[in-house]
């Protein structure tokens, strides 16, 4: 997963996701904090990325150049958008069913959910994992665990790194 994470957040003048051990973090989070549905979707997604890479470049994702890796992940975009729209629609349908059940006094109604799209999860985990890692937080943001004061009108110019704290 380090390779996927690094493609989402590559090394620039600041550390990349690989250096921040985001792959390892993703594995922990998926195993410990994700529902079975989402775990399944996530693992199927790893295989799907590899398959997409083979189709596009004729070899495994691990062997691809950074540019080719990016092309594979970018190619997922239309599918992700379509899936998210479907998921939103599904959630709305469930809202309606829930309302109907409530109106009929049906207390046995159990709401169903669609898992997140695997790439949405990978992107979210990369961002969370990167900015909560030592390398990401201290390397790519202005980390101030003990600010000492609050200033409400500090100058900012486009490109300035954000301030972050302990949480």
């Amino acid at each position: 997963m380090d390779e996927v994470a690094e493609t989402i957040f590559p090394k620039t003048s600041t550390p990349g996701a690989k250096e921040a051990k985001v792959g390892q973090f993703m594995t922990v989070m998926v195993n410990d904090c994700y529902t079975e549905d989402n775990q399944k979707a996530f693992h199927e997604g790893q295989a799907a990325i590899n398959a997409a890479c083979k189709k596009m470049h004729g070899h495994d994702f691990m062997k691809a150049t950074p540019e080719d890796k990016k092309a594979v992940l970018v190619s997922l975009d239309p599918e992700v958008k379509e899936y998210q729209a479907k998921r939103k629609e599904f959630s709305k349908e469930q809202d309606d069913l829930e309302k109907k059940a409530q109106a009929n006094g049906d207390t046995n109604f159990e709401r169903k959910t669609m898992p997140d799209h695997y790439f949405t999860m990978m992107k979210q985990l990369t961002i969370l994992g990167y900015f909560t890692s030592k390398e990401g937080r201290t390397g790519a943001t202005r980390y101030e665990p003990v600010p000492g004061k609050y200033i409400g009108d500090l100058d900012y110019k486009k490109g300035d790194k954000i301030f972050t704290g302990l949480n």
Binding site: T7, I8, F9, P10, T14, L73, K123, I162
Partner: peptide
């Protein structure tokens, strides 16, 4: 956090480190 959430790579990373 971030000027935009679209895409991946350098631009996304740059966006997410800015206000």
């Amino acid at each position: 956090q971030g000027t935009g959430y679209d895409g991946i790579g350098t631009e996304l990373k740059d966006s997410m480190t800015q206000a």
